[in-house]
Computed example of a mutant assay.
Amino acid sequence: MSSRLLLAPLAFGLLAGCNTVNPQTGSVDPGFGEAVKYDQAVQTIDPDPVYAADAAQPGDHGDKGAAAVKRYRTDTVKQVEQVQTTSGSGSGPK
């Protein structure tokens, strides 16, 4: 019983760190809920999307994919373009 009485104030002290109300102003932290708002924005479908001209378009029905499979089967696959993303040497900080 005495150990419970000693642990109760410690538990309440730890839970006070989870408080989102500013003790000086009494208002909720302005950043409270930002992660949820961001996740909602990321998961919301754009009702008017913009597609690149050379990308798959709605209604293509797999025409680009079928052409790629045909090139693969006839051994006429497009060569991969080499892109350099870094320059300089990899010797580390100087």
Rank of each mutant, 00 (worst) to 15 (best):
L7A: 13
A8Q: 08
A8G: 04
L10E: 11
L10K: 12
L10Y: 12
F12Q: 00
G13F: 04
A16V: 01
A16Y: 03
G17R: 01
G17E: 02
G17H: 02
N19P: 00
V21C: 14
V21Q: 15
N22F: 08
N22L: 07
N22P: 00
P23F: 02
P23I: 00
P23M: 03
T25N: 01
T25W: 00
T25Q: 05
S27D: 10
V28L: 14
G31A: 11
F32W: 11
G33K: 02
A35W: 04
K37P: 00
D39F: 06
V42C: 11
Q43D: 08
D46Y: 01
P47G: 09
P47H: 08
D48S: 03
P49Y: 06
V50S: 09
V50I: 14
A52D: 10
A52Y: 05
A56Q: 12
Q57W: 07
P58C: 12
D63G: 06
K64R: 15
K64H: 13
G65H: 10
G65N: 13
G65T: 10
A67Q: 14
K70L: 08
Y72F: 15
D75I: 03
T76C: 10
T76P: 01
K78S: 07
V80G: 06
E81D: 14
E81C: 05
Q82T: 10
Q82L: 14
Q82H: 11
V83P: 00
Q84K: 12
T85M: 13
T85W: 13
T85H: 15
T85V: 14
T86V: 15
T86P: 00
T86R: 11
S89F: 09
S89L: 15
S89I: 09
P93T: 03
